[in-house]
């Protein structure tokens, strides 16, 4: 009875298989081969690629670096985005102005934006160092020093994606009911206490959503690193996706990059699930008086 309803599910199911399941299963199969420029094709290499990955310090360093980069950029984006959203929350004129202004970085293509920032950070030709010298801080080795290059990547990511966080959080703030704020005033909560006890907890669900969306995007960071630093100096700004790109697309080690990709996918899925649960517990269910 009502079997025909499954016919309507079929197109969606076929797309799911073609777009997600087939590439995933194919990647699993490739990861158990040693397909490279010398041995093209799906041979059987067992777990050799995974064993190699286990001892590949560059991969794990890239993963650790990516984690740091993601946490730092998303945290700064969240704090800045929230602060800006709070600033314009009650001011309609400012809200319109900032909403338009902040769309500009989001609308810029990451590669174009990274080229512009690479020019800004250029140590002899860029405008940043003369400005810093004018301020008495002195020129900095933005793209030639590992630490500064890492900071440069963070700055560019924050510049581009803080507006996204701002817009999401502003939408969240505008959707909050006004009554609890009135109640908080009457119940003796000043502005700071109202923020901590009412605004912030009521923004819990939207905050978790915004942080997770940005964390997922940050975990895939590639274009900024590719254009701005090419993973350098050395490998100091190399992220996992960039490293997989080097192994797969530049060195053509297809089997090995498939093993790296699959492991990366599993680690990210587990990590993001744990982060989501922790954030939900901390920011949504844990909200108390």
């Amino acid at each position: 009875m009502y079997r025909q309803k499954y016919i309507f599910l079929l197109p969606g199911l076929l797309v799911l298989i073609a777009v997600i399941l087939f590439p995933l299963i194919f990647t699993i199969r490739v990861s158990f081969s040693s397909w490279d420029v010398y041995n093209p094709g799906l041979n059987d290499a067992g777990g050799a690629m995974y064993a190699r990955m286990w001892e590949d310090a560059r991969y794990w360093q890239a993963l650790w670096r990516l984690s740091l980069l993601s946490v730092a950029t998303v945290l700064i984006q969240y704090l800045l985005g929230f602060a800006l959203a709070l600033l314009v929350w009650r001011d309609i004129a400012a809200r319109r102005f900032f909403r338009v202004l902040f769309l500009v970085p989001m609308m810029t293509t990451p590669v174009v934006m990274s080229v512009i920032w690479r020019t800004i950070f250029h140590e002899s030709l860029g405008p940043l160092n003369p400005i810093l010298e004018g301020l008495g801080i002195g020129a900095q080795p933005w793209l030639s020093h590992p630490g500064f290059a890492f900071v440069a990547v963070i700055i560019v990511e924050v510049w581009q994606w803080t507006p996204f966080m701002f817009l999401l959080l502003l939408a969240g703030l505008l959707s909050l009911p006004s009554e609890p704020f009135l109640a908080a005033k009457i119940d003796g909560a000043g502005p700071i206490r109202t923020f901590l006890s009412v605004t912030f907890p009521m923004m819990g669900a939207i905050s978790v959503g915004a942080i997770l969306i940005r964390a997922i995007e940050a975990s895939k960071i590639m274009e900024t690193v590719y254009v701005l630093t090419s993973g350098g100096p050395g490998t100091s700004t190399e992220t996992v996706s960039y490293y997989i790109y080097i192994r797969g697309m530049r060195d053509f080690q297809i089997g090995y990059s498939a093993a790296l990709s699959l492991t990366y996918l599993i680690i990210m899925a587990v990590a993001l699930t744990l982060i989501a649960k922790a954030l939900m517990r901390l920011m949504v269910r844990g909200a108390g008086a």
């Binding site: 009911p177 009554e179 609890p180 009135l182 109640a183 908080a184 005033k185 009457i186 119940d187 003796g188 909560a189 000043g190 206490r193 006890s197 009412v198 907890p201 009521m202 819990g204 909200a287 108390g288 008086a289």
Partner: peptide, 27 residues
């Protein structure tokens, strides 16, 4: 927030993110 006043309005105003007990404990 410094006035010794309590108020109940027409609308059912409570803190949606707190349970009933925490709502009462809030002030």
């Amino acid at each position: 927030w410094h006035r010794p006043v309590a108020m109940v309005t027409q609308q059912f105003i409570n803190y949606p993110h707190l349970n009933v007990l925490d709502n009462l404990a809030f002030p």
